[in-house]
Design a protein around this nucleic acid. Structure first.
Lengths: 168, 168
DNA sequence: TCAAACTTTCAATAATTATTGAAAGTTTGA
DNA sequence: TCAAACTTTCAATAATTATTGAAAGTTTGA
């Protein structure tokens, strides 16, 4: 199989999976493209490789920078900006976990904390059920939070491997 | 605060967070509503409480059943079907993890496995970089898979708590 | 067998989200 | 200071996804 072909498949799949989360397909595709290339690419090159408009590429490159998944590069004597992926898998995972936490955990945790602090009026047994739910969810989310902290502290597969082996 | 009001806030937030993943807002809202009620509700009641059309409620109730997050209930002497949430947090988490794995891990893992098995043609250093990426990603995803298996095996917060305390 | 009570389907539509591309903006070096 | 080389913005549009609601389908018990 030609390398180019393999890269394209990788980009397609990463894009599809990304959009199954809430990540825009183009953003995921651009990320995949940059991951697949050791060197940084320019906006033009990205546009060319995955057939996206200038605006789209510009916006999504910025977003990838915000996520901490890629960074700008300047080549000596060139004015053009190049974009290079962060290639350390654990770093990538860390960034993605953090971004998803922001969107998927924090809002619900904030609400739960608020609800816990509130005295409910209503049928006591219904109130009881609801408070139980709020408490259990909050506990659960705190646990997940702690787990993600642990994960984020790990630096590579090797450490993780031991950790898993130890528990399994 | 009135219980009803609190439930509504919970439903709203759960819906918003859900749609920040790939989960349809209505599906997440219906789930939240059923979680918040100890007893099962009928299609009519769900429609009434969160102002959704019959079709929408029907489809999303079915999807929640597919996810294993709710189940049908029949009340003695009544023809109507009632829908009741699974209220065990760890069960809920397990189902969600499994569904998300299907959508977010399996497709990329399949591709990676395929790519690993393929001999690439191209510039050796580019091929090297790409193969390294494929291998590292595959390793990483396997690890996450193992972690999720572990999580799913835990039955409640208490066990998880010890586990976390031990590691932290 | 029939009508009432219910559930399901699905084409049409609405809502949301992503994308385009041209125009405006910025930076650079001569 | 100016024009060339580049980046950014954003209104218009396209694409996708969710929702509606009426009609069709199914089940029940008399």
């Amino acid at each position: 199989m030609k390398l180019e072909q393999a890269k394209m498949e990788f980009i397609q799949t990463w894009g599809a999976v990304g959009s199954a989360w809430g990540i825009p397909r183009s953003m995921a595709q651009i990320h995949a493209l940059l991951l697949a290339n050791a060197e940084g690419l320019s906006t033009e090159e990205v546009m060319e490789e995955i057939k996206l408009s200038r605006g789209n590429v510009n916006i999504n490159l910025r977003e990838l920078i915000n996520w901490g998944l890629i960074s700008k590069q300047n080549k000596l004597g060139e004015r053009k900006e190049y974009f290079k992926a962060n290639h350390h898998i654990w770093e990538i995972a860390k960034r993605i976990i953090e971004e998803r936490k922001k969107r998927e955990f924090v809002p619900i945790q904030n609400l739960l904390r608020e609800l816990k602090a509130t005295k409910m009026e209503g049928n006591p047994s219904d109130v009881g059920h609801f408070n139980k739910l709020v408490n259990e969810l909050d506990d659960f989310l705190s646990q997940m939070d702690q787990l993600s902290e642990l994960l984020v502290k790990m630096k590579d597969n090797r450490f993780f491997n031991q950790f898993i082996k130890f528990l399994g």
